[in-house]
């Protein structure tokens, strides 16, 4: 028997109200694969991640994470949200934020355990910011905070890592080293990353899925201009590996 894929969507549909946000989405991400999920704003990228995390429940179709329903597979999934989901001035140190990743549904009432400090240190080391452990999160730069968020996801040793627009608030230099960081992780886990920056991701990932309510296209990177035109309209061009829209 072959092992269950990290993530499998079969004919999934979802709507927040009357208009469908996702229609008939089928996608299969194998263990250890590195995928980018691209598409226009409102195309359903974040919704797809939230369905995979069990934060939303699909209206139709079936979702399996390592062969299980999303709510039962949470212990194996790491999640890196968009920045906007929490207040930057919240009075916590980096260590306390990363510690949140150690919580799980069975042991969530326990105080900090022996292994927690070591696990936090290891996770921060993996993303290269171990020296920030005692810093208040309000004093971090965008790139540093991004790495702390990834450490929080990694501290639970996930085998599937889901990232929502991880480079949206990071400058270009940090973006490149950020992809190096993800490349270093991909041997031990499958990665699915939502992004709007088509040119950038197509050079780093090995599979791309284009989402615009339904799955317009998916396959091996890089993208061609024909697919982009289908996705964003005929005016879209890849210029110097970056997507620009001419008016």
């Amino acid at each position: 028997m072959t092992p269950a894929p990290a993530l499998e969507f079969s004919h999934v549909g979802f709507s927040y109200g009357t208009a469908p946000t996702l229609e008939d989405v089928s996608l299969r991400v194998g263990a250890g694969e590195f995928w980018a999920l691209i598409g226009p704003n409102g195309g359903g990228k974040s919704t797809l991640l939230k369905l995979a995390l069990g934060l939303l429940v699909s209206d139709s179709g079936e979702i399996r994470i390592f062969g299980k329903p999303p709510a039962e597979a949470r212990a194996r999934v790491g999640y890196v949200p968009q920045f906007a989901t929490f207040p930057r001035d919240f009075p916590l140190a980096v260590e306390q934020v990363v510690l949140q990743g150690r919580l799980d549904s069975r042991n969530w009432w326990h105080p900090m355990r022996k292994g927690d400090h070591a696990a936090i240190r290891t996770a921060l080391d993996r993303v290269g910011v171990a020296d920030l452990v005692a810093r208040p999160i309000g004093s971090l730069s965008g790139g540093q905070l991004q790495r702390v968020m990834i450490a929080r996801a990694l501290v639970a040793d996930p085998t599937l890592l889901l990232l929502d627009e991880p480079t949206a608030h990071v400058d270009t230099d940090a973006e490149t080293s950020f992809f190096d960081l993800l490349a270093g992780l991909r041997n031990s886990m499958a990665i699915v990353m939502v992004s709007h920056d088509v040119g950038l991701v197509s050079r780093h990932v090995d599979h791309i899925a284009c989402l615009k309510r339904t799955l317009v296209w998916h396959g091996a990177a890089p993208l061609t201009e024909g697919i982009l035109a289908q996705l964003y309209g005929a005016s879209a061009r890849l210029v110097d590996h970056r997507l620009t829209e001419t008016s």
Binding site: L53, T85, F86, Q100, D104, S105, R152
Partner: peptide, 11 residues
Amino acid sequence: FDDEFATTRGL
């Protein structure tokens, strides 16, 4: 701090 993330941890 982040109720969405806490939900993904099964809280």
